[in-house]
């Protein structure tokens, strides 16, 4: 693996390898001294063309826990806002001897473009509506911890099924909401289906990308068919501007048809796991009660944050492997 640009272009073995490695890093995150010297003297640059506190912080912590130097290039403060091309920016960062570049960008494919212009490993931290691979990997890890290991704190040895330790073949995952604009939905569709899970997509037609059925997902036309028998429900954030751009009549109707509530969760399995990549619009795509874990529905928010750091440490570890000499 040279770069991590998309899950679609990452084969199943590599997905397993990242998850396997992340499980090892979860242990380090429980230590009083969360630091290993692995990447000492190396630098990770986070190049964010969109604001994102959570993902950026997660990558920076991952780098720092491995003793790498993490430098953030905030777009507003850099020459990017003066119209510098991505190519020129990448060449400059490479000349500054970056050892890994983590990029988030509003244009789909920006990470692919970046990877063309530099020999340094590039990690896609979200590009347009294309993919957000590390989010899918951390979601997969969280689902595995809940549904395979069964323990919320991960103290389980990986050797459950040594041949296929992260097999999710027994699970049905429903992804609900604005699928057309969601990079998380795309990355998760590839990641979870490669691990064997059945993935359902459900949302209003106006928020469904063209020929979605050609992806490894089952497209559902109503919430009930999506949630029936589901082990995991992944709720996507609804950008309220979708209503303004004419894709939805009203948030009220959206909430009534597609909002995940205790009532709609009755269609799912009793031990259903509800996930949300955040930040949540309570009362729109998810009811406040479900969001806050009221009534025994398990919330994964904190665990997802920890897994996020572990997965990103794993990606940095695996991609920054070469000696560079």
């Amino acid at each position: 693996m040279r770069d991590l640009l998309s899950i679609r272009e990452t084969d199943t073995d590599q997905i397993h390898q990242v998850l396997q490695t992340a499980v090892g890093f979860n242990e380090i995150l429980k230590r009083p001294v969360k630091k290993v010297p692995t990447l000492r003297g190396r630098s990770v640059i986070t190049l964010f063309y969109e604001s994102s506190t959570r993902t950026r912080t997660s990558f920076e912590l991952a780098a720092k826990y491995m003793s790498a130097d993490a430098v953030n290039i905030a777009v507003a403060q850099s020459s990017v806002s003066k119209g510098e091309s991505l190519k020129d920016t990448l060449k400059t960062l490479e000349a500054l001897t970056a050892d890994c570049i983590v990029i988030r960008h509003p244009s789909s494919g920006a990470a692919h473009l970046a990877a063309q212009f530099t020999s340094v490993p590039v990690i896609n931290a979200g590009d347009g509506r294309h993919e957000h691979p590390t989010q899918a990997l951390l979601d997969a890890l969280t689902i595995w911890q809940h549904k395979v290991v069964g323990a919320e704190d991960d103290t389980y040895p990986v050797a459950l099924r040594p041949d296929k330790p992260f097999d999710l073949a027994h699970l049905t995952v429903a992804i609900v909401g604005d699928l057309a604009h969601s990079r998380v939905a795309r990355s998760n569709a590839w990641c979870l289906s490669r691990l064997g899970a059945t993935v359902r997509w459900a949302g209003p037609r106006t928020l469904l990308p063209a020929e979605a059925h050609q992806l490894p997902v089952t497209v559902c036309d109503d919430l009930e068919s999506a949630l029936t028998g589901a082990d995991v429900v992944m709720v996507l954030r609804l950008q309220t501007e979708r209503q303004e751009s004419g894709l939805l009549p009203s948030l009220r109707e959206y909430s009534r048809l597609w909002g995940v509530t205790h009532t709609s969760l009755r269609w799912a399995k009793p031990d259903v796991l509800v996930m949300h990549p955040g930040p949540m619009n309570r009362g729109v795509e998810i009811s406040a009660e479900v969001a806050d874990g009221v009534g025994g529905v398990r919330s994964t928010v904190e665990q997802q944050v920890t897994n996020g750091v572990a997965v990103r440490m794993a990606c940095l570890y695996l991609l920054m492997g070469g000696s560079g000499e």
Binding site: G24, F25, E27, M66, Y317, G321, S323
Partner: peptide
């Protein structure tokens, strides 16, 4: 003790990270 993360050489391919217990 898994020492993959503490090795001072950088092999072309990273050794798999085992579990320290």
């Amino acid at each position: 003790l898994d020492i993959a993360l503490y090795r001072d050489d950088y092999p072309e391919r990273r050794p798999p990270v085992g579990r320290t217990e």
